[in-house]
C-alpha cells in the first residue's frame, strides 16, 4: 500500500472519530436544552453563548474528580468495563457510508472509513460486545444495585437483539448483500425506492429494538433511577462514569446512522443522481445524511419525554411475544413475495 493511501485512511479514521465525539458533545448539550424546552425550563445557558460550552465544562469537571474504585470490587474488570463499552461504540461508525464518492488528488475516495464486505454483521457484532461491558461493569462493582442493573440490562439487550437481527435479515433479502454500500446503492433513485416504504414492518421493529439496544427511555430499565439508583454504573465516578455516557451517546449516533443507512437510503437525496454532480453532489449527499441522522437523534430525545418507562415483565413480553414473532412473520412475507415475483 502506498503512503498516500495510508494517510487517507488515517485521516478518514481521525475525521470520523472526531466527528463522532463532536456529535456526542452536541447531543449532550441538545439533550439537556431540548429536555428543558419540553418541560418549560431553561436548561444550561450560562457557560458560553446559550450554554454551548456546557459539555466541555462537564468534561473538564469529570477529569478533575477523584476516581474511586470500591474496596470490594474486582479491580481489573472494574477498570476494563467502561473501555469495553466505549471502544466498540466508537468503532461501529467506521463501516457506515456517509456520502457519495469524492475525487481528490486524482483518485476516487469513498466517504466511508472501511468498506467491509460483511458491514452489517460487523455492526451487529460490535453492538453485541457492548453487552459484555455492561455485564462486567455490573458484576465487578460488587454492589447490589449494579448487579441488578447489569443483569436486567443484559437480558434486555439480548432479547431485543433478536428482533433487530431478524429485521435486518429482511433488508438483506431485498438487497442480496451484507455490504452497507450495496444496501445504499439498492435504494438509489426515486423516493419510494427507500427501504422504509418496502419494509415498513421491519422499520418499526428495528426502530423499537434500537431504543432498547441503546438503553433509552422507554427502555431504560437498567438505570431506572427510582429503583436502581444508577444501575450498572452506580459505583463509577470521575472519567469512567463519563465514559459510560459517551458510549451511550456514541451508540445512539451509530444507531441513528444505521437506521438511515438501512431504511432511508443512506446518503441518498431523492430524485437526484449525486455521482453526476461531482463535488456538489458529494456535499449534497453528506448534508442529506446529516439531516436524516439529525432527525433520528432528535427523535431519541422526543420519545424520551413522550413515553413512560416499561415495567420489566412488559418489556420481556413485548420483546419475545410481539417483536420476535412479527419479525419472523415479516421474513416469511418478504421471502414469499420475492419468490412469487421471480416465478411470475
Amino acid at each position: 500500500m502506498d503512503l498516500l493511501g495510508f494517510i487517507i485512511i488515517l485521516v478518514k479514521v481521525l475525521v470520523v472519530f472526531a466527528a463522532t465525539m463532536l456529535t456526542v458533545l452536541v447531543m449532550i448539550y441538545l439533550e439537556r436544552r431540548v429536555s428543558a424546552f419540553m418541560q418549560g425550563r431553561l436548561g444550561p445557558n450560562r457557560v458560553g453563548p446559550q450554554g454551548l460550552l456546557q459539555p466541555i465544562a462537564d468534561g473538564i469537571k469529570f477529569m478533575m474528580k477523584e476516581d474511586i474504585v470500591p474496596a470490594g470490587a474486582d479491580k481489573p474488570i472494574f477498570i476494563l468495563a467502561p473501555a469495553i463499552l466505549l471502544i466498540p461504540a466508537l468503532m461501529t461508525f467506521a463501516v457506515i457510508p456517509f456520502g457519495s464518492d469524492i475525487t481528490l488528488f486524482g483518485r476516487q475516495i469513498p466517504l466511508q472509513v472501511a468498506d467491509v464486505n460483511v458491514g452489517i454483521l460487523y455492526v451487529l457484532a460490535l453492538t453485541s460486545i457492548g453487552v459484555y461491558g455492561i455485564v462486567l461493569a455490573g458484576w465487578s462493582s460488587n454492589s447490589k444495585y449494579s448487579l441488578l442493573g447489569g443483569l436486567r440490562s443484559s437480558a434486555q439487550l439480548i432479547s431485543y437483539e433478536l428482533a433487530m437481527g431478524l429485521a435486518v435479515v429482511s433488508i438483506i433479502l431485498l438487497s442480496g448483500s451484507l455490504k452497507l454500500n450495496d444496501i445504499v446503492a439498492d435504494q438509489q433513485g426515486y423516493l419510494f425506492s427507500w427501504n422504509v416504504f418496502k419494509q415498513p414492518l421491519a422499520f418499526i421493529i428495528f426502530l423499537v429494538a434500537v431504543y432498547a439496544e441503546t438503553n433509552r427511555l422507554p427502555f431504560d430499565l437498567s438505570e431506572a433511577e427510582q429503583e436502581l439508583v444508577g444501575g450498572y454504573h452506580t459505583e463509577y465516578s470521575s472519567i469512567k462514569f463519563a465514559m459510560f455516557f459517551m458510549a451511550e451517546y456514541a451508540n445512539m449516533i451509530t444507531a441513528a446512522a444505521l437506521t438511515v443507512t438501512l431504511f432511508f437510503g443512506g446518503w441518498d437525496f431523492p430524485l437526484v443522481d449525486e455521482s453526476s454532480l461531482g463535488i456538489l453532489g458529494t456535499v449534497l449527499s453528506v448534508c442529506s445524511f446529516i439531516l436524516k441522522m439529525g432527525f433520528f437523534l432528535f427523535l431519541f430525545i422526543w420519545v424520551r419525554w413522550t413515553f413512560p418507562r416499561f415495567r420489566y415483565d412488559q418489556l420481556m413480553k413485548l420483546g419475545w411475544k410481539v417483536m420476535l414473532p412479527l419479525a419472523l412473520f415479516n421474513i416469511f412475507i418478504t421471502a414469499g413475495y420475492l419468490t412469487v415475483r421471480a416465478l411470475v
Binding site: 469529570f62 477529569m63 467491509v116 472519567i239
Partner: peptide, 23 residues
C-alpha cells in the same frame, strides 16, 4: 478494509487511554 478497522481499533484504544491518563 479490515486493516482500516485495525487502525480504528488502535485509535479507539488510544482515545480511551488518554482521558484515563489525564485524569
Amino acid at each position: 478494509d479490515f486493516g482500516t478497522v485495525l487502525v480504528a481499533v488502535i485509535l479507539g484504544i488510544v482515545m480511551v487511554a488518554i482521558p484515563l491518563l489525564i485524569q
